[in-house]
Nucleic acid binder design. Structure first.
Lengths: 248, 248
DNA sequence: CTACCAATCTGGTAGGGCCAATTTGACAAC
DNA sequence: GTTGTCAAATTGGCCCTACCAGATTGGTAG
């Protein structure tokens, strides 16, 4: 990648939040989950005592406890003092962040989960657009326009626009002036970064996405809410079709 | 509380997911956050070295590292090997679960965050209703009806329906047959359980809520989506008005 | 000024130990 | 046989020390 390309892509990349670049400790979390699966642990059942589990996994008790602390915060696991560590119901009790984390560990989501994720993302993006139409500031519009220009430049340089795309949608969420919405949508982008990189490897998709982004900016600029909703639904529809195909 | 009341309330209570009943280790997490605040740590800035910070907080390095592992998984903090632990931007980078956790520690949310939370919750509940109208099964309807009956019983026994209310909304989310939606909405319920308990201390509010729940069930049963959307917006409007008043 | 190397500082990990609360099971009393 | 009691074992919560590998720093030799 040339220096020129990098200098263009950098501002957009800077706005992207990466899901922690593969910390060494993360691997252990995956192994704990794997242990539960391979040993057929059901929701509500207990893990072996920390001392034993640590030995089984070949790590120190400290390292295991750090992993368990993480899993507890994501409601995957529930430690009860003087009793044991219990597995929760992953599909209902655990946090969505747990899905993000497990995806980052290479645990492939199944087709149902992808469908469900897309449905939730659509609801959040619609809300973001709705609020953005009402609250967008000149700064918001300028940022969106700048990211769109960066995107075009990356396309011209035959780069991958996955980061630019994420930056655009993050800026869109920011235009809603709702930080909770930003954080929730960000979780989705972290979850799907790699997939979007594959998606945008196709230049036609990248081009189409860029055009739709510009249309979205115009709709928000003019506060044309119904049109903006229609555009975002169509925009997300692309990804939906793609995922359905790749997982079918 | 009488035995009769308990036996009625229990099934509904069983469906409620409590946000981990005040683990001892959680307190340290709050102290780390407090340290960052009192020392004016900005996003991107570094915490003291683990050894020093542990001594400052009067805990062992192990305990501190468990707290940091939790904060890392919630993207509140970013440890870089051989460099240090860095604070992330809470309002944009950290996960929504971090808000849930901090709320559980007694960190009062400000008015803006409550507004933002309500806006996101509304988007998710609307999506849940929309999907529920399309996918609800007889089982879903039966569960909703049973919870509604439980709720009425608790009201008659002059109990607090906060748990019943949570169970109802959880069942509603379940009727959408989207587990991601369930998990995200569950995070909201964990976040607001105590507030809803205060809200429902007023019997008139409890009664009104119960009636609205029955109307929602009917609308979903008959797949009358526009009416269901209208009802859920009105239903959530109650809470919105309440929060605006209490925080004004 | 540069190149190099050693001291230092960082987080990551291991393994030891102690405590308090709970559970378990043997034993005694009835 | 049942019940009550108490001690031993088990468990998570927490602390301490030590070592490692990578990065930074600072001084020194060239």
């Amino acid at each position: 990648m040339s220096i020129a390309t990098r200098s263009i892509a950098t501002p957009a990349r800077a706005a992207v939040i990466h899901p922690a670049p593969a910390q060494p400790g993360r691997a252990l979390i995956g192994r704990v989950i794997e242990y539960a699966r391979t040993h057929g642990l059901q929701a509500g059942e207990r893990f072996p005592a920390e001392r034993n589990l640590a030995q089984t996994l070949g790590v120190s008790r400290n390292a295991l406890r750090e992993a368990l602390a993480t899993l507890e915060s994501l409601r995957v696991v529930e430690p009860r003092p003087n009793s044991g560590v219990y597995l929760r119901a992953l599909s209902s009790e655990s946090s969505f962040e747990a899905t993000v984390l497990l995806a980052g560990l290479g645990t492939a989501p199944d087709a149902a989960e992808v469908r469900e994720t897309i449905e939730v993302r659509a609801a959040l993006e619609r809300q973001a657009i709705t609020l953005a139409c009402a609250r967008r500031t000149p700064d918001d519009l300028a940022r969106l326009a700048r990211i769109s220009a960066d995107t075009a430049a990356v396309i011209a340089a035959k780069g991958n626009i996955a980061d630019c795309d994420q930056a655009f949608h993050l800026a869109l969420a920011n235009a809603s002036h709702n930080s909770v919405l930003v954080r929730m949508l960000n979780a989705f982008y972290c979850l799907t970064l790699e997939r979007r990189r594959v998606f945008f490897a196709n230049p036609k998709r990248a081009q189409a996405s860029c055009i739709q982004h510009d249309q979205l900016i115009a709709a928000i600029d003019q506060r044309k809410l119904p049109r903006a909703i229609k555009l975002i639904d169509a925009h997300l529809g692309n990804a939906q079709v793609y995922w359905k195909e790749t997982l079918a």
